[in-house]
Design a protein around this nucleic acid. Sequence first.
DNA 1: CGACATTTTGATGAAGATCAAACTGGGTGG
DNA 2: CCACCCAGTTTGATCTTCATCAAAATGTCG
Lengths: 263, 263
Amino acid sequence: MIIDAFTHRLERFAVLSPEEKAAVRSACANTRSLPPRFELLRQGESTTGTNLILSGFACRYTMLPGGRRQITAYLIPGDLCDVRACMLDGMDHSIGTLSPVEVAQLSHDSMLELTQRVPGLTRAVGWSTLVEEATTREWVLNVGHRTALSRTAHLFCELFSRMHAVDLTHQNMCELPITQSDLADALALSPVHVNRTLMKLRALKLATFRHQHLTIHDFAGLQEVGGFDPAYLRLEDPSPFSEVRRPGAPAAPRSDHAETPMI
Amino acid sequence: MIIDAFTHRLERFAVLSPEEKAAVRSACANTRSLPPRFELLRQGESTTGTNLILSGFACRYTMLPGGRRQITAYLIPGDLCDVRACMLDGMDHSIGTLSPVEVAQLSHDSMLELTQRVPGLTRAVGWSTLVEEATTREWVLNVGHRTALSRTAHLFCELFSRMHAVDLTHQNMCELPITQSDLADALALSPVHVNRTLMKLRALKLATFRHQHLTIHDFAGLQEVGGFDPAYLRLEDPSPFSEVRRPGAPAAPRSDHAETPMI
DNA sequence: CGACATTTTGATGAAGATCAAACTGGGTGG
DNA sequence: CCACCCAGTTTGATCTTCATCAAAATGTCG
């Protein structure tokens, strides 16, 4: 169950009691199923709540004149879209689904209540904001300075690592329910060039993306080519292929700095 | 005085009493002067506080293999660098000065105290986080999809608007204490190409950047070329050249949603 | 004055865009 | 069951933009 993956991610940052986990779970009871290519939140709109992705892929994106689309973030299961969007009087970008998506709807009020019942949540949310910012910065690097091959390799490393963190990988494989065009929109490449790059990645025996499935043949090599350093994702397990799994003891959550009021 | 610019920016989001303004001011008493090209915060380090830029330009950046540098954000007077950095056990990027810079040092503790004494501050900081995120996303667009000319035009629009918001423009002119190379690092272009692009902007009578000064000849044109929509900056005055200045009445700060705890 | 950073100019090359068309494969309806 | 359709993928050919290299010009500061 993905909500467990979600609470698990929260525990990266704060220990949760069973009651707290139950509170999270019950807050996520109200779910909705969306078709692919569905506009969850349109640029200019405002919201009253937050959506937690339970299954499927969504993305943040902006349309550009000329019909081109730039995806600025992939949203995968366990991701909270726009915790802070309620502050806004109008989104500056859109959020849409790429595949069929199931979301849990969290109203602003239930988020408020939840943060009161689960003290660590605030910290966890702050942390995930930080990770999201870092990821966007990494995308600036990617799009700005890396070649098509390197860029694609980097994105695959990032996605595979994130999928691994929510337990959605099987061995060296994971499902990415997106098209080559969707990749192109994220990588700021033409679909044609993405195709050629994917073929090259296969030829180099680094990774295969086909039929919505990503298979990693050589993570270290991919990481090398992409210049991928997983630090910015702040994952418990920096590499999805590290053999060394801490047995039992979860990573010590950072000491709770007295009370850190929402900053 | 730039601190006034800072409190003024805060007031965009919450009304401050004179006492609150005074509290902000006294918290900023501890200042430091830094030379240009000074590394304020190195990748991997952690901090105990926050710096408020009082004068000069700094930037967030990451070094890439091959000695190339990608700037992911310009930090200008009135900007708070890394409010959330204290949560981190290691920065994933560096912060450095571009020109001589004067900063106010705010320890974590004094930030805590300040947020308690100035209730609106939390909201204002949350808001500015939102703007920063949006700006980074905009940079992804810029670097990913726009031509050199368009990119440069967009950056100039953004910088001029931000400088205008902290009252550091004079007519159609403002000081940008940075080099063409610094621009190149932000735009993900070679310095040579930046130079050629600047010449083209001049030839088109859109803007001149020379001797660390940016002069806007035709803001509307620049905006057009850059595809610049100021909405994401959430400024009180969307355009630095809008004749219509609200007389007296400040923009109504958004109704304070009960208490929004830090999310 | 001379060292040094920055800006400007020129020539060449490579990465990726664009355009056009063929090929797959799953789904639909006759 | 087959024919068709359509989205997605693959291939080929050509063109643009920008990087790179090299060197000259300009300006600044001790």
